[in-house]
Design a protein around this nucleic acid. Sequence first.
DNA 1: AACAACATCAACCGCAGGCAG
DNA 2: TCTGCCTGCGGTTGATGTTGT
Length: 359
Amino acid sequence: MVKEKSNNNGSKQRKGLWSPEEDEKLIRYMITKGEGCWSDIARNAGLQRCGKSCRLRWINYLRPDLKRGAFSLQEEDLIIHLHSILGNRWSQIAARLPGRTDNEIKNFWNSTVKKRLKLNNNSTSSPNNSDSSEPNSIRDNNVVMGTTTTSNNNGIMHINDHHHHHQDLMTMSMCMDNSSSSTSSSTMHTHHHAMVFGDPFSMVTNNNNNHYEMATGVAGFHGAMAGDLPLENSFHGGDYGRMLDEESTDKMGLESDLSLPPLESSIRSTEEIIIINNASSIDDMKSHNNHFNNNNNTNNDSCFKNTDNQVLNNNNYSNEEDLFGFGNHGQVENLRMGEWDFEGLMQDISYFPSLDFQV
DNA sequence: AACAACATCAACCGCAGGCAG
DNA sequence: TCTGCCTGCGGTTGATGTTGT
């Protein structure tokens, strides 16, 4: 249902579901002009929508880098774990899941995960823990993680046990290398196909200058399409999608800078920009997207909705931010994520002889 | 086939923070 | 410092689709 309301200028503004025509207008505008002030975009694109609505539509639905389709088990695991750490900070969780939006994850959590975890808890609950107010998998999850955690009222987790924390780190290090190259100079060479997600924070590695960087994993898009695209650029970020792909041949080293791509950024790889700019129609754009797809998805009812593993997975983000969005990229300060003691984490990392971490 | 109940998800709303004037 | 605008976030709503009876 589409409603209308008057804006400040007295002109009518549409609300409700977007029509294909509106989508096309917005896509065309975004392709040709790029992002800018959303209220201007709404006006200039000839849309009777508020800027906010345009932004939402673009970010949650029309962006070509969105990975549509069902969440994989690995993504679900990661969401559960990230949620146990970050709580309902959907945007931060989404930032670690390339191609997924906060809205999508939020919906997925509220509709699917929550229920599943509740069922899990019910089936495994004992009188001692069944009354826990913890809404999610924190307990369950940490069985997997081998990490003893507690949470405050906000669901923010505290790591209490150094020993288990180390296990946590180790688990992750083993997973991480799933996507590592046989030619990589990384010091982590364990090949481990069981996707047990350790703590994503543990994926922060350290070069020789107290310069913390992501080792690989959940953050970053670059490299997802290694089979399709030349990766002549340095590897900016691990890739969750690749990490999930056990069979992928790896062309990337691990020692490169790894950074969290700002999801809202319009920074794109040159190649992608060419692709998009050369697209003469929306259909062209869609087909270009499909070019990079695995085409697992048959849903075809709206712009880009059918695309899976889409083009921006090969994004080359030039912004250097670390996993947590700390712009200083590794300055050792009082880095805290919620109640998380980042420094403490880094101290913990130093216990790992097998990881090339030094603090 | 018809209806109800439930599930999913796109989109809206309100708020907070950043920033420029 | 104040104000207004813009953006981003998280919670919520409601339309639509699916499943069960």
